[in-house]
Design a binder for these strands. Sequence first.
RNA 1: GUCGCCAUAGUGUAAUGGUAGCAUACGGGACUGUGGAUCCUUUGGUCUGGGUUCAAAUCCCAGUGGCGACCCCA
Length: 407
Amino acid sequence: MEKFQPPRGTRDLLPAEMAAREALFSRLRGVFRSYGYGEVWTPAFEDFDLLARKSGPDIEQELYVFTDKAGRKLGLRFDPTVPICRIVASSPNLPKPMRFCYLTNMWRYDRPQKGRWREFWQAGVELLGSPRPEADAEVLAVAADCMRAAGLKRFAFRVNSRTAVEALAKEAGIPEGKKADALRALDKLAKVGKAGVEKELQEKGIPRAKAEAFLGLVGQEGGRTDPGIARITELLKEMGITNVRHDPSVVRGIDYYTGFVFETMVEGHEDLGSVASGGRYDTLVGLYGGGEVPATGFGMGIDRVMEILGTGKAPVPHLLVAPVREELAGNALSLAGELRARGVACEAEVMGRSLRKQLEYANSRGIPHLLFVGEKELKAGAYTLRDMQTGKEQQLSLEAVAKQLRG
RNA sequence: GUCGCCAUAGUGUAAUGGUAGCAUACGGGACUGUGGAUCCUUUGGUCUGGGUUCAAAUCCCAGUGGCGACCCCA
């Protein structure tokens, strides 16, 4: 018999993991709501041209692309920002600023590795309409609150200004056409070191002298302070966020960032890379025909966060309704229904098991209470509720059982 | 798309080219209205397809999937 497994780079999420994710989602939603962000949903697939517009047709290699039955070329969403810019571009009259948040999955056709999936989840915010550092500071503050809400305490932001680095590249004499290559090489500084970056720059056709000049200027930049970053850092300090370091090598690989960019590293999990990143993208909405709308945002990698947090136990109901004899299974089912109508989460026995086995089962699942359903109980209309922890039992009407377990 | 390492019951692991085992989990029982212990026990596996060989989990090739390095990024 052929066995199927999930397609490459995807996986199943079982109840224990889903419960942990849902808990994380609900905490993140709480953070988003507290800042006034409204949740949006966009389609899983979009016109390929929309997806490709910002990065050119080469992006096709990294996307899931398909043709529908009418011959339209479509692609799976690989980024939350692009569809949100489409919304904004086609709804230019929405009041500004616009605060959108999302919690959603997306797809990218790249090589799976630890913390990198072909289907992955991201949650984040986009703040559109403001070009000011206050907006960038707010976005980073939301990210900070999300990290804390996730239960991550030991983390640090690395921030930078992409415009500043681009200016340095120009100053070093790196031609406009090589700018993207240069920034991408620089992004690896922490990983491959200065010599590694220099090597890559030369491989990309940037002469040694210019590469050295660029790296020299970037090195100085660490000491110099970019005015935009300084202002954002100052605002963050006023909000009590101090774990922010200026790192001139952080430029992000994505092309649409135009200014402020940041990454978030969790102490002890540096191998996972950034778990939340974002920045300013003032020209992206314009690309979709909406006129210039300055914007900034960030996304948190849910799969990476879950990798760090780990998974607890699968959730269990309050109660197992246990028929003492197999023939009473039907009574147990209907009593369970009545209890649910009274607000009690419970499960009924469906395996036809002996009472002993049911106790064993409740114990191993961690179900805290068990309700015996036998002839005695049915006749009296009072059921035996057993506390699995203490072993204490009491005779109660359904109403009393519900009252106790709800409270 | 390139390179390297890897793949055995659900999970974790054994098996010089010669009978695929152990642990755990799951199901049943010892114990027909009272669990967590103990004992017994059923089911279940060599990723897929080729090749070499008297004989392949083991060697070779390809595919699939996992991990890591490129690339890119959450």
